[in-house]
Design a protein around this nucleic acid. Structure first.
Lengths: 224, 224
DNA sequence: AACTATCCGATAGCTTCACTGTCTATATCT
DNA sequence: AGATATAGACAGTGAAGCTATCGGATAGTT
């Protein structure tokens, strides 16, 4: 059992389960749902799994757990990684996957115009899912009486541009098309989560800087 | 119908439903779940609802639909708005609400250290939910073989700082404590969604700039 | 006062989702 | 040979977010 970790060329179901920490029944479920490709058949009711299945399982868990995707959505994303699509289309698929499908009809045209003003000069197509999603959020903000003070929203746009540039740089740093496609998908799905986490950490930081807690006996600058 | 919009001091259930676009059964459900406060009682089985209920319903739908919160989580967030907590604590509640509760035990200490390196110099407490969430994402990135190229992650951190400053500015621009608390909560929950949308629009923009589509007969710079 | 529409609150039911468990006929390990 | 494991089919489970129905009371109209 110790051995198998070093050269996991072939695994049977039980070992794949142990190695991934995912119950057998769940792996079978992912197989049924075509999230995980079938193993290499060695008989009518036998199959072997390899390193790639382990890797794929980690991707699946990442998309579901961290990215919060549904199984159906994750399948779409995974298909995009596997397909031979050009990179730009991989972006599109990944973006559509993480965006809730919004009917452009029930978005206030004024909110849409508001977003377009924010991203003035950007080359964004009309049906970009991010644009629609952002307009939907803007509409919600406004219906809740949150007005845009001190360029709140345009500072979001500026930050989003920085992140998008970082994303593209990261993608370019990968070698093959497959690696790039994988980075596009992982980056699109997990990047949202990473940013959210960092943003919340930054909120505490900025908040502590601006409103120091007076009573506390001089906290240390960082954690714990 | 047109009239009632102007002075909706008192509404009965049916009108609240019509005005909000939410089915009566669903409103009752929200009442049961204590997302929506009970109306003003006028008898043992009668109640009136006002402007504030309409407003609250919009908040609920925003949290659930746009923010993707669960009903249970939304209740926590709403309680935070209603409570008399100091602002700093409202942030904490809102942050905890949007972050999946992560057991610090099953986060690789190295991933945690990785995040701490990214946010070097920030005043972030050890149990900040964003810090843990970010570490979890980092760990997932690494398990998927995504290495940090060209300062990918630290550029996220820089952008997060920009956004957090914008957030705090927006909060300060509100007048009363209640308004500030509300902005904290709405901003924390919906801000994630707004950023994600803008990021995806920015991705298309940057991607189009870097890899212009050659065949297309010279697209116009912006939408449709 | 009668009649109809609506209300509240309780409870049960529905649908989707992501698993989880059971079963059978085979296959593999020892 | 006999214990254990496997693929695949299928039924079951539990949570979540509504949705529908009912009984008794009230509101508004006539």
């Amino acid at each position: 059992m110790k051995l198998s970790d070093s050269y996991t060329i072939h695994m049977r179901m039980a070992e794949l389960s142990r190695a991934s920490g995912i119950p057998v029944a769940t792996i079978k479920f992912y197989l049924r749902e075509r999230l995980l490709p079938a193993g290499e058949r060695t008989g009518p009711n036998q199959a072997r799994y390899g390193e790639e299945h382990l890797r794929r399982l980690r991707l699946i868990r990442g998309l579901l757990e961290v990215g919060g995707l549904s199984v159906a959505t994750a399948r779409g994303v995974i298909d995009a990684v596997d397909s031979e699509l050009p990179l730009t289309q991989s972006f599109g698929v990944a973006q559509r996957a993480v965006s809730a499908t919004i009917d452009p009809a029930d978005i206030d045209p004024e909110a849409l115009a508001g977003i377009d003003r924010l991203v003035e000069g950007w080359r964004v197509s009309g049906d970009n899912p991010g644009r629609l999603a952002a307009a939907h959020v803007l509409q919600t903000f406004e219906s809740l009486g949150q007005r845009d003070e001190r360029n709140w929203f345009s500072r979001y746009a500026a930050a989003a541009l920085l992140v998008a540039e970082a994303d593209l740089d990261q993608v370019e740093a990968r070698g093959s098309r497959e690696d790039m496609a994988e980075t596009v998908v992982i980056g699109t799905v997990l990047g949202d989560a990473l940013f959210s986490g960092l943003r919340r950490a930054a909120q505490e930081h900025v908040s502590t800087l601006r409103y120091p807690v007076p009573s506390e006996p001089d906290r240390t600058p960082t954690r714990e």
